[in-house]
Deep mutational scan, measured.
Amino acid sequence: CHSECLGNCSQPDDPTKCVACRNFYLDGRCVETCPPPYYHFQDWRCVNFSFCQDLHHKCKNSRRQGCHQYVIHNNKCIPECPSGYTMNSSNLLCTPCLGPCPKVCHLLEGEKTIDSVTSAQELRGCTVINGSLIINIRGGNNLAAELEANLGLIEEISGYLKIRRSYALVSLSFFRKLRLIRGETLEIGNYSFYALDNQNLRQLWDWSKHNLTITQGKLFFHYNPKLCLSEIHKMEEVSGTKGRQERNDIALKTNGDQASCENELLKFSYIRTSFDKILLRWEPYWPPDFRDLLGFMLFYKEAPYQNVTEFDGQDACGSNSWTVVDIDPPLRSNDPKSQNHPGWLMRGLKPWTQYAIFVKTLVTFSDERRTYGAKSDIIYVQTDATNPSVPLDPISVSNSSSQIILKWKPPSDPNGNITHYLVFWERQAEDSELFELDYCLKGLKLPSRTWSPPFESEDSQKHNQSEYEDSAGECCSCPKTDSQILKELEESSFRKTFEDYLHNVVFVPRKT
């Protein structure tokens, strides 16, 4: 048989008469490798580009789960590009990614509803959504962080984005990388972005840091009482949809009607710091009717980097990364020049730590249904340095008659930039024990000054392991946590139920 035959053949030295091919099969003959313009397919066939392209389009058009959109890589027609490569849609070739590779997620039936953290986790790592997304989240724990972890990498949506009755959302900033909504599939009414009845939605994105392009379709905003109209108009300008909307697409009466839409800028007039305090004062603000001013709200939190936005980490279910302080308005003076500047002394802060701070007014709604208010920009203030805590785990070892090696770990709280350490030492008198000992005694162990690591005695271990207080009263049991108490109650309830079950099964009433 021919060298490319495997198993047997019907005619000697003829690659077209093989029972099976050793390498690849091409047009009725066995070959060692697939010549151009053919590609290896499933490690035994040679196919042309049209064959591989037909497989790709067949799966793409069917949208069946589990099928493969075949691509070409290293002269092979394979189910998908290997790690580190992405497909070129024009020629199906796998090309190296520039940075992290995109991950295209194809949605069944063309859309997916995100109504819980669990459903959001199914899209973790996706960068391109081939379909439409509907966000409908009523509640949950730590929602802002969970949504950002699972949806934060999405850069492109081919269909539309719909935010509907998501009472738990305060902001859409968890879509931190969303840059493009194509609108290839539109919501009824030709809408590519749809926001309806979101009672706590206050911000779409921080438009000073976020760009969003909507290729096709219109915007729809109705019944978002805490979303200011200025935020919607800003989205029109940034996304390129200005002029597409009709009169009733953006409701003037049901958007922002319960919001404090600040239209003035508060400026800080005085800032002073110490290692654990920050004193702030800002310019006074009074609405047209000074009785509408209820006070100020001061927001602050630790910020290692200057990239904080107002609604980071917030949701309507209680999660809030900001510390909020309510401040009463100052006494009002008739003389504008003698107006008191409101302020606040922030206490209990960490030394040498940068804080993000902003302040906003708290006002009631005027009778004319106009909203007044003022808010400052987010500023960054760093507390002063102070003395560091003591170095940890000092170790001293003498390696000769004239040297001592000293080692330690950095302090747990540096409280500033540590530039150097101060080492103090003092000579001590020799131990009298060394002169009084009889060095001729056998088995004498000389006193040693070398360091030995501390260890816990058996008594201390027994005390720590004991669940009861000892007789001397030195140790006591740790208080039980809520989960331990709940577990004990469940076990007790189970024992009672099981005992009742045994009584009912074992003891049967005697027939009379």
Rank of each mutant, 00 (worst) to 15 (best):
I188P: 06
L108H: 11
L143R: 07
N263G: 14
N263S: 08
C317W: 09
L252Y: 04
D315I: 06
S171E: 05
F296Q: 15
K209L: 10
T371R: 09
K360M: 04
R244Q: 12
S398G: 14
T113P: 09
R370V: 11
F290R: 06
L172K: 00
R244F: 04
K409T: 14
E302M: 09
F193I: 12
I395S: 08
D115W: 01
W282N: 01
Y305H: 14
H233V: 07
E236S: 11
W282I: 02
I137F: 13
R281S: 03
P388R: 01
K177S: 07
T127V: 03
G256Q: 05
R202F: 08
T353K: 09
H106T: 11
Q339L: 10
E246L: 07
R370W: 08
M346Q: 05
H106V: 09
L133S: 00
I278Q: 00
L108S: 10
I163T: 03
R291L: 07
L252R: 11
G348W: 04
R176Q: 14
F221A: 10
G183P: 03
L180Q: 09
Q403V: 03
N190L: 08
E302H: 11
I395P: 01
L172V: 09
E122Y: 05
S173E: 11
G313V: 11
A145M: 10
K226R: 07
I134V: 10
C126N: 00
E187H: 09
F365R: 14
L280M: 11
T113Y: 08
S402V: 15
F174P: 06
L169I: 08
L212M: 03
L108V: 14
L204V: 04
G140D: 09
N150L: 06
L229P: 01
T241Y: 11
E246Q: 13
E237V: 03
K226N: 13
E237I: 12
R244T: 08
I154C: 05
D328P: 15
Y160R: 08
T383C: 03
L212F: 11
T254K: 10
A144L: 12
W205S: 02
T127R: 05
T113G: 06
N334M: 09
A374Y: 06
A144I: 03
T323H: 15
Q216M: 13
S116I: 08
D312V: 06
V397I: 14
W352A: 10
E246N: 10
V397Q: 15
N263Q: 05
E187D: 15
W322D: 02
N399K: 04
H233N: 06
Y223V: 10
K301D: 12
I379D: 01
N334E: 01
L169N: 02
F193R: 00
L298Y: 01
T113V: 11
T113Q: 15
N142Y: 03
R179T: 13
L151G: 01
T213Q: 13
V363I: 14
K375Y: 10
R165T: 14
S400H: 13
S132N: 13
G343M: 05
Y380I: 02
H341K: 11
K350A: 08
K301I: 13
S171H: 15
E246R: 11
I129N: 00
S171W: 02
S321P: 04
P391H: 01
V170I: 11
F275Y: 06
F358P: 00
G131A: 04
I214W: 05
K301W: 05
L143S: 15
K103A: 08
L147Y: 01
T361N: 07
C105R: 02
Q121C: 11
S338I: 03
I134R: 05
D115M: 03
I405W: 10
D335C: 05
A120C: 13
L169S: 12
L279V: 12
H222W: 08
E237P: 03
K375A: 09
C317T: 04
F311A: 15
L294A: 07
I278R: 00
L229A: 12
H233S: 10
F268R: 00
D326I: 04
K242N: 12
G125P: 00
L172D: 00
K226Q: 12
F290K: 05
N399L: 08
H106P: 07
D377S: 10
Q245C: 09
A120R: 02
N334Q: 13
I357A: 06
W207K: 03
E237M: 10
R291S: 14
T323S: 07
D115N: 05
N399V: 09
I395H: 13
L229R: 13
D206Y: 04
S274K: 11
D335N: 06
F290M: 02
E148W: 06
L280G: 00
K218P: 12
S116Y: 02
T118D: 11
D289H: 06
Y300C: 15
K253H: 09
T386Y: 12
R176V: 12
D257W: 06
G313C: 04
C228S: 01
F221I: 15
W282G: 00
T371V: 08
L331N: 14
N399Y: 10
V117M: 15
T213V: 13
E302P: 09
T361I: 05
S376G: 02
Q245S: 09
V363R: 03
T273A: 09
E155S: 06
L345S: 13
M346R: 02
L201S: 00
E155F: 07
K226A: 08
T371C: 15
S192K: 01
F311N: 13
I395Q: 05
G159M: 01
P288I: 10
L196W: 12
M346E: 03
L123D: 01
P342R: 07
L172M: 13
L204M: 15
I114W: 01
F358R: 12
R347L: 05
V238N: 15
E237S: 04
L172Y: 01
Y167T: 12
V381E: 09
S338G: 09
V104T: 15
S333M: 05
A374T: 08
G313H: 14
L280C: 04
L331V: 11
E122I: 03
F268W: 08
T213F: 04
S319M: 15
G348F: 05
L266F: 09
N130Y: 03
G318K: 02
T383F: 00
V324M: 09
H210L: 05
G152V: 02
K409N: 15
G140P: 11
P342Y: 04
T361W: 03
C317S: 03
Q403R: 09
G373I: 03
S321E: 13
A144D: 03
G189L: 15
L212C: 02
C261H: 04
F175D: 00
Q403L: 09
N399H: 10
L133T: 01
I114L: 10
T383Q: 00
P351T: 04
C261A: 10
I181Q: 00
R176F: 02
L153T: 14
E156F: 06
G125R: 11
Q403P: 00
S376K: 02
Y223G: 08
D335F: 10
I114C: 06
N198K: 00
N198C: 04
W207S: 05
A120P: 03
I232S: 02
W205G: 04
I157Y: 00
E111S: 06
V325W: 15
W352L: 03
N211R: 09
N200T: 03
N307M: 03
R124V: 13
S166T: 11
D276V: 01
K103D: 05
L180T: 10
R370L: 06
T185W: 08
T254L: 11
H210T: 03
S166N: 13
P304Q: 03
L227T: 10
